[in-house]
């Protein structure tokens, strides 16, 4: 006969059962009671469309996002707390980048030319009505919203290098960068930026244009070009397409849409793209952290983001104890929000 090893099975079962249930009940209570403290801000990551939904429902108190989302929020009755221009004048935003080895100088010259032409078209006040129409078509928003949004975006041909460095310093300080530029094989930060922000093509193109406004570079064969769906910042791409600039200098243009800059960087890594319009943030982050070899050849826009708040916020201090949303960690918008919070003496929980 075997000796008893589990004589008290009955009791054990019931005891375990009861304790599991008790634990569950306890944890429901615990997990639902999120507590907030003074002088800290609850920072959450949300996609911009979600930000709009959640601020309408009162789940978040503020958010920072790029146009047209702030303008859409304004349409719904929220107010702009600060535009990105107020927080950080001339801050970099979107850029045109290419994968090293996937585009030769001829291709780049053609691309930069089309981009510069389109940007100049946007900035020409005579084209205002046409631009609003293009913007509306591109983003699927009504003309009133896009015309407000367009006012907040500063379309540029090349980013401000000093401000780009400033953003890089932020990434370095907040330890979001995992690697140093030395690890990537550069002697110094200066030499990295000289390589990363490639200005010679741009300079060559505008010099030619200055000499002869009708200059058209030699036609390149084809290009695979990525951009973010409906991002008003990337309007120049749409204009370049609609006004025929791209077709003038390329035999074939293959466009690919992406949901965000991270996805574009992954496509670069896989060699699916030659060049793309994307945020300077994912470009820099993934260039350094993941070593995806790209260079920036042109700027797309500066500024163009804004912080939107619920009614009762009028100064940074008012954000204490609130929940604010950013579109991603290490983004320019993240930096903008942290600058504002620091001004109000607030820390992120």
């Amino acid at each position: 006969m075997k000796m008893a090893s589990g004589k008290k099975i009955d009791k054990t079962i019931y005891f375990r059962g009861i304790s599991i249930l008790l634990l569950a009940a306890l944890l429901i209570a615990a997990s639902l009671s999120g507590c907030t403290t003074k002088n800290t801000v609850n920072l959450v990551k949300l996609s911009p469309p979600d930000m709009l939904e959640q601020i309408k429902l009162g789940k978040i108190d503020a958010f920072v996002a790029w146009e047209p989302f702030p303008s859409k929020a304004v349409e719904s009755g929220f107010k702009v707390f600060m535009t990105s221009k107020d927080i950080w004048p001339n801050h970099p935003c979107c850029v045109v980048a290419y994968k090293i080895g996937k585009a030769d100088d001829k291709t780049l010259r053609a691309l930069v030319w089309a981009h510069v032409k389109a940007t100049r078209f946007i900035k020409n006040p005579e084209n205002r009505d046409k631009i609003i129409e293009y913007a509306s078509e591109f983003t699927g928003l009504d003309k009133r919203t896009v015309s407000i949004a367009l006012q907040n975006i500063k379309y540029v041909e090349y980013p401000d290098e000093k401000e780009f460095r400033h953003y890089y310093e932020f990434l370095k300080e907040s330890k979001i960068l995992k690697k140093s530029v030395e690890e990537l094989g550069y002697e110094s930060e200066d030499s990295f930026f000289n390589d990363f922000l490639r200005k010679d093509i741009y300079q060559e193109v505008i010099k030619k244009l200055d000499e002869n406004p009708n200059y058209v570079p030699e036609k390149a064969s084809s290009i695979k070009l990525g951009y973010i769906t409906g991002d008003l910042h990337h309007l120049a791409l749409y204009v370049a397409l609609k006004e025929g600039y791209l077709n003038q200098v390329f035999d074939k243009v293959e466009l690919k849409q992406f949901p965000n800059g991270v996805a574009i960087m992954e496509a670069f890594r896989l060699g699916e793209l030659d060049a793309a319009y994307l945020g300077g943030a994912p470009a820099t982050l993934k260039r350094i952290n993941d070593g995806i070899e790209i260079r920036i050849v042109a700027g797309v826009n500066n500024e163009g983001s804004a912080i939107i708040v619920m009614g009762d916020v009028s100064k940074p201090e008012d954000l204490a104890g609130k929940t604010v949303a950013i579109p991603g960690f290490g983004t320019v918008q993240d930096f903008l929000m942290r600058k504002v919070l620091a001004e109000g003496g607030l820390t992120v929980k």
Partner: peptide, 9 residues
């Protein structure tokens, strides 16, 4: 009394 069936012959 407190033996389980599998412990009995």
């Amino acid at each position: 009394e407190s033996y389980y069936p599998h412990q009995l012959s």
